[in-house]
Design a protein around this nucleic acid. Structure first.
Lengths: 204, 204, 204, 204
DNA sequence: AATGAATGAGTATTCATTCAT
DNA sequence: GATGAATGAATACTCATTCAT
């Protein structure tokens, strides 16, 4: 939680921030439909009505949380990925970041792996906005790898992105539903060994 | 829907069946919380109260639907998989069956990709019961492939199962959120080209 | 229960009887609104619908139970009271019978002290029919005592009947709400010592 | 109703008060199970949900009404009874207060004589809390009378309290079920003439 | 900006009663 | 007579949202 808090702290209303922090925690614990607006308000130390000064409604609150978190992941990710030259290294780093971000905070993982999927509307909206950007970054790196001749010619970049993302996603979900007695990020290496090998040009 | 109906038709109360069929459709369309018990009852052509003769409550209805469908997938799958000798062929068939089953019926896919994940409780329950069996089958085949010497020695069967399942899952979700103008099952080949290649022993 | 059963056994449908017996028990245990028709039917070993062959509805069932029991009390009482000459003896016997009847069966006491009073409608109906007869008997005996010169002239028979009945009633309720580790009928003597003394002509 | 309103008017939420007043009236008219929460809310001029800001549930509403009224009776009663020296006078006053309180307001009488007895749970709870206090006061006065030598030595105080309370109770119920064309409180005198005479030491 | 009392639409569930068999 | 599956009206309670202060 502290990491989350430290990341932000931007100009944004300190109260809005507090509400979001509280919401992530309460929503992760009780689920969207098991959480009342009052619970969130109480956890944030504000009045129920105050919530509506910053968010249109309960839905909007979850949406904004997800949207901002994703934006933050993307922003952070871009900066870091720029530091790597080789597409394969960037792919590796992408996976590590994904697992690190979600593995660092169970509440946050819960929001992304479960709450986000409540609802077809939510999923569609998400998959068409920030998620699209996130996905494009992944797809872009794979494209680069293809162009750099590091990938078999018959491999489709989009499909590969789907497999990579699906694998990452399932790793997170498995971790979340497990006892969480291992570091999620350490799954990145073994996972990439398989997937990158799967798309790599045979070098005999 | 017709395919689903034909598969069952067992001795089970015809009315219970009708309710489940109707529920799948309505739940897929409106989501769990967007669907009232009355809507399901009306769609099934029964009175609200009738629903409670067959299900404990709204939750139980969704649970039973998922449980039965999964059981059915597993049963069907086992019969078919037995017909294949080679572990790699069986893996291929497993993926095809998964994509075929969910790709055959959008409503059903929606239940599995979205409604099932409503709720941490649901997911946990599911991941600890039928889902565990389903997953074990997949893991078992991979084990066989390992023992048959068709897989790199450093590959972990469980991790591979996670990647395979995650990839299949993401393929289904992508399809569901798309225009669905392609046959989901046709993704099985390209997907396996990558993943099986990724775990295969280098044959130079 | 057996005593109740033995008393009846008349020509009346054996099934109707069984339903009433069961109803007394279940109603006493759970209260009118805490008891479903199905519960009564199950306890009686008949189908729900069967109940409606013998009773108009749930209300009617309770009504008929109370009505018949009261009728039975009255009938029995009359026979016994006839055997006593002195009004004071008959008053004594009346009290004893009341306490004996209700003290013999907790379920039955519960029906009379609690279930009967559910509802203004019920009470009014009851107080205007059988109860009126029951009360009249009591009042009649007091009248006789007055005319026999055993009672102070300024004592009102009706008021005395109210006090007597109220006292009996409260004794039963107290017993019912207590641990019931004493014989209710034994309260008759001490109670009458006070009340009869209260209305008796001073004999100095 | 006005008398009730005037008595309170304390600091207690004016809205809570209004709901209780309305509830007494509606419950007396239709009975507990014949009254919906909406009816009470409407009668009180508040929204359904508002009721739940002040009471846990429908049951709690009735419970709180009874509890507060009894508390009020007890408090008022204590003050008044203190003004009387002689135990016999205090007994007389107790009876008068009981009949005056319930005879002043039919709705209120209905709550106490009928609604309170709905349910074994209610009766038990009541008979073990406030009612116990109320009863103890009565028993206490009789004790004093005994100790003052105004009562026959063989009279049991508790039994006498039961008879007195039962008599009062029955007087109220009779009045409630009658046309109520007489003042209930006027029954106190004749009633006490009998009961007090019944326990009094013979003075010849 | 902040509050939190008040709102009232919305819904899962129960259960007395019916009626085709 | 007897059944019990089916009915569907009826209702307590919740909670997102508002708005007067």
């Amino acid at each position: 939680m502290s990491s989350r808090a430290s990341v932000r702290q931007t100009k944004k209303s300190e109260k809005k921030q507090r509400i979001q922090e509280a919401a992530i925690h309460v929503l992760a614990k009780n689920g969207y439909h098991g959480t009342t607006v009052s619970q969130i308000a109480r956890a944030a130390g504000v009045a129920d009505g105050t919530l509506y000064l910053y968010f249109d409604n309960k839905d909007d609150l979850l949406l904004k949380i997800i949207d901002e978190l994703t934006a933050q992941f993307i922003e952070e990710g871009k900066d870091i990925l720029e530091q790597y030259e080789s597409p394969m290294d960037r792919l590796r780093k992408f996976a590590e970041l994904h697992l690190k971000n979600l593995g660092a905070d169970e509440d946050l993982a819960c929001i992304f792996q479960i709450e986000l999927r409540h609802n077809l509307r939510f999923m569609k909206m998400f998959s068409q906005t920030r998620m699209r950007t996130y996905f494009s970054i992944l797809e872009g790196i794979i494209h680069e790898a293809c162009e750099a001749g590091e990938v078999r010619e018959d491999v489709d970049a989009r499909l590969t992105a789907i497999l990579l993302f699906g694998s990452l996603d399932e790793l997170v979900t498995n971790w979340l539903l497990s006892e969480r007695d291992y570091a999620l990020v350490e799954m990145a290496g073994p996972m990439l060994d398989i997937l990158l090998n799967g798309i790599a040009k045979k070098t005999n």
